[in-house]
Simulated assay, not measured.
Amino acid sequence: MTEPTWWPEVLAGARRRRMVTAMLLDHAVPLLNGDQLRLAFERSDIAAAWAESDAQAALEDALKHAGHNLTVTAA
């Protein structure tokens, strides 16, 4: 078997998604209420970047992988 030619691009995209998610989460205050995780962002530009990115999906995937079935909201 050979490595697909497109693999480096997919790998780079996955790394960027993880790094962006982590950078944005550094600015969040996580608040847990039952099965709902609310991310509070003090800066509106960070909240906007969160909303425009794919970071929430990455966080939800990581939470599910860790066994946490939470609904994530951000403000």
Rank of each mutant, 00 (worst) to 15 (best):
M1D: 08
M1I: 15
T2C: 02
T2H: 01
E3L: 13
E3A: 12
P4G: 07
T5P: 00
W7I: 07
W7E: 14
E9W: 05
E9D: 11
E9M: 07
V10Y: 01
V10R: 11
L11S: 09
A12R: 15
A12N: 05
G13C: 02
A14E: 14
R16D: 10
R16A: 11
R16C: 00
R16K: 11
R17T: 06
R17I: 00
R18W: 07
M19L: 14
M19I: 14
M19Y: 10
V20D: 09
V20W: 03
T21K: 08
T21Y: 05
T21E: 10
T21C: 15
A22S: 08
M23T: 13
L24T: 03
L24Q: 01
L25V: 05
D26H: 13
D26V: 04
D26R: 09
D26P: 00
H27Y: 14
H27C: 13
H27T: 08
A28D: 02
A28V: 10
V29L: 12
V29Y: 03
V29A: 15
V29H: 10
V29N: 07
P30S: 10
P30C: 11
P30L: 11
L31Y: 01
L31N: 06
L31K: 04
L32H: 06
L32I: 14
L32Q: 07
L32D: 03
N33K: 10
N33C: 08
N33G: 05
Q36L: 12
Q36G: 00
L39A: 09
L39K: 01
A40M: 06
A40P: 00
A40L: 09
A40V: 13
F41G: 04
E42A: 15
E42K: 11
E42Y: 01
R43A: 15
R43C: 02
R43T: 09
R43P: 01
S44C: 01
S44P: 02
S44Y: 01
D45Q: 03
D45S: 13
I46L: 09
I46H: 10
A47S: 13
A47C: 08
A47E: 14
A48T: 09
A48K: 04
A49S: 15
W50K: 07
W50M: 03
A51S: 14
A51H: 07
A51T: 06
A51M: 00
E52D: 15
E52F: 03
S53Q: 09
S53D: 10
D54Q: 14
D54V: 10
A55S: 15
A55K: 03
Q56A: 04
A57F: 06
A57G: 11
A57D: 12
A57I: 06
A57T: 12
A58N: 09
A58I: 05
L59Y: 08
L59Q: 08
E60H: 02
E60S: 08
D61F: 05
A62F: 02
L63S: 04
K64F: 07
H65F: 11
H65A: 15
A66Q: 09
G67Y: 07
G67W: 07
G67Q: 08
H68D: 05
L70N: 03
T71F: 03
T71N: 06
T71A: 14
T71G: 06
V72G: 06
V72P: 02
T73Y: 01
A74S: 15
A75Q: 13
A75S: 14
